[in-house]
């Protein structure tokens, strides 16, 4: 490889034909630009959620004399998320609003920490540490995906009581056409937003397994640097970041 021997810049930071813009490796910069474009995609999804939500009346708009405590689910107004997501695995029938989503948030934040610890270990070129923290990150990713699968399954199957419509018909669970929680758009946005995020988590886990495999085989040790861990790390943190926003705008408000 033709690299200037006089420069102190590490080989992977030098772009073909010139100095590196923004003092960053090519791959890392492109990952940042990709994440920026991904930000726009997720923003578009969350903002359209906001637009549609505000185009529907809220429970209080229709029933001004009622309070938050007496909230009921109906097709006529947008649901309050904490009244929809209140189930936790193995605790059937107990109302625990947002607890399971909180656990999922914790899992993702934790796997973000283990990822950044793997990046830090890569800086020290400590192969064993990189492997250890990557394994924890992969475990966290799978746990989150499993939790989301449960959440989806519970959302799709719905409650035993279901929702009784004005004409006496009953609706159970959710699909893209109708659901027992509120307007059809509510379930549609749930599927698209959490689904798009879950797809990102899945791709992240695949990438994590890939770099774990490479790190274990000493690929980055021979290459002389662990920048690949940093690049995938950026992606993984972004997935965590998106979840922070989904948690706030979909579940909390």
């Amino acid at each position: 490889m033709a690299v200037s021997k006089t420069s102190a810049t590490p080989e992977h930071l030098i772009w073909e034909g010139g100095t590196q813009p923004m003092k960053i490796g090519y791959g890392k910069l492109m990952m940042w630009i990709f994440l920026l474009s991904d930000t726009f995609t997720f923003s578009a999804l969350l903002i359209s959620y906001g637009l549609v939500r505000f185009s529907f009346p809220s429970f209080k708009d229709i029933n001004p004399e009622m309070t938050h405590k007496t909230f009921e689910l109906s097709h006529d107004w947008w649901p309050v998320p904490e009244k929809v997501f209140e189930a936790v695995p193995f605790l059937h029938g107990i109302s625990l609003p947002l607890v399971f989503v909180g656990i999922m948030t914790f899992i993702l934040i934790f796997s973000s920490v283990t990822m950044v610890l793997a990046v830090e270990a890569g800086h020290r070129r400590d192969k064993a540490d990189v492997e250890k923290w990557m394994l924890w990150t992969i475990l966290g990713g799978f746990t989150f995906l499993g939790s989301q699968a449960w959440e989806w399954s519970h959302f799709i199957h719905g409650s035993e009581e279901g929702l009784t419509l004005a004409n006496g018909a009953k609706v159970f669970g959710a699909n893209l056409v109708t659901n027992e929680y509120g307007p059809a758009a509510f379930a549609d946005f749930f599927f698209f937003i959490t689904g798009f995020h879950g797809t990102h988590v899945f791709s992240g886990v695949v990438l994590n397994i890939l770099i774990f495999y490479n790190a274990s085989n000493g690929v980055y040790e021979r290459r002389g640097h662990y920048e690949m861990i940093e690049k995938v790390g950026l992606y993984w943190h972004f997935v965590d970041l998106v979840w922070v926003f989904v948690f706030t705008f979909f579940y909390l408000v």
């Binding site: 003092k23 910069l29 973000s112 920490v113 790390g233 943190h237 970041l241």
Partner: peptide
Amino acid sequence: IVGTFMHLKGEVKSL
């Protein structure tokens, strides 16, 4: 998350 985990704080201003 962006500043510390993704280390954007430590990058150059233009980035």
